[in-house]
Design a protein around this nucleic acid. Sequence first.
DNA 1: ACAAAATCTTAGCAAAGGTTAAACTTGTGT
DNA 2: ACACAAGTTTAACCTTTGCTAAGATTTTGT
Lengths: 144, 144
Amino acid sequence: MAGGDTSPTRAFDRTRHDHASETAEDYVEAIAEIIGRDGVCRGAALAKLFGVSHVTVTKTVNRLKREGLAVAEPYGPIELTAQGKRLATASRRRHEIVFSFLKSLGISDAVALTDSEGIEHHVSAETLKAFRRFVEREDRGKND
Amino acid sequence: MAGGDTSPTRAFDRTRHDHASETAEDYVEAIAEIIGRDGVCRGAALAKLFGVSHVTVTKTVNRLKREGLAVAEPYGPIELTAQGKRLATASRRRHEIVFSFLKSLGISDAVALTDSEGIEHHVSAETLKAFRRFVEREDRGKND
DNA sequence: ACAAAATCTTAGCAAAGGTTAAACTTGTGT
DNA sequence: ACACAAGTTTAACCTTTGCTAAGATTTTGT
Ligand SMILES: [Mn+2]
Ligand SMILES: [Mn+2]
Ligand SMILES: [Mn+2]
Ligand SMILES: [Mn+2]
């Protein structure tokens, strides 16, 4: 086996795994958000949001289609499959918890926005639960 | 410009930037650690630690050399430049703070090890400071 | 000394995620 | 109708990070 259960090797493996899912998570989250806001999601809106070229978006969306997360007809708007919607919802929830957690710690809005965008993908279920409970406790404490 | 100061676009940009530095940070941290433990650092030790092939290590170390972080003669052990040592020290400190922070939150050793390996690269100076202060306060609280 | 083991390099391949340039489709306005 | 603008696709290329297979070097053991 490649290292024991709690070995550093396993940690690097998990981080690589997280990065492999990261783009898909950010894209489905963004697609759901744009559809909610604008009614439809065009590739150009994703390119603007992520700050990449529209060609990069086309290729990444093709990968999402291949993986069964998105559907789109040629030159048509991008939609999510049931699986894509589930991933989008889970990703958005996790992202919101990480953001709220950083805010509860006293981090500024701008930095919490930035840091949570990267951190969200590396937070395990155990850590997410701890974050959520911390936010809840802080919120309760602020009730006068 | 590509989005205002606190726009989501800027957050995605920062995350991509973090990922570009990530491998270098993990490698110099590992090289310093292995030298401290074994006296010298061979590529094979890095391959074992990261759980990748020795060929991947050779190529990544070549990039570190190109970037002025590491030096090594052909078939020789890997060493760090002054710049590499500085990056290693800064990375280790940041990593330790993130790990301790997760531990202070009540996360188990195994999960704190895993999650901190990915999270460390996305923690800004402001967030790192908040993490450090949280750990210090918790430590003080535990003194009976 | 020298065979075996360990380590390292090189060559060649793939996937992900970036780019620009050029062509194609679609919708809008007059 | 039809030109123009917006949006999309395709082609061709790059870097990083991974792999296997094959060969080169260095260290170790007898
Ligand atoms: Mn993200
Ligand atoms: Mn990451
Ligand atoms: Mn590290
Ligand atoms: Mn790391």
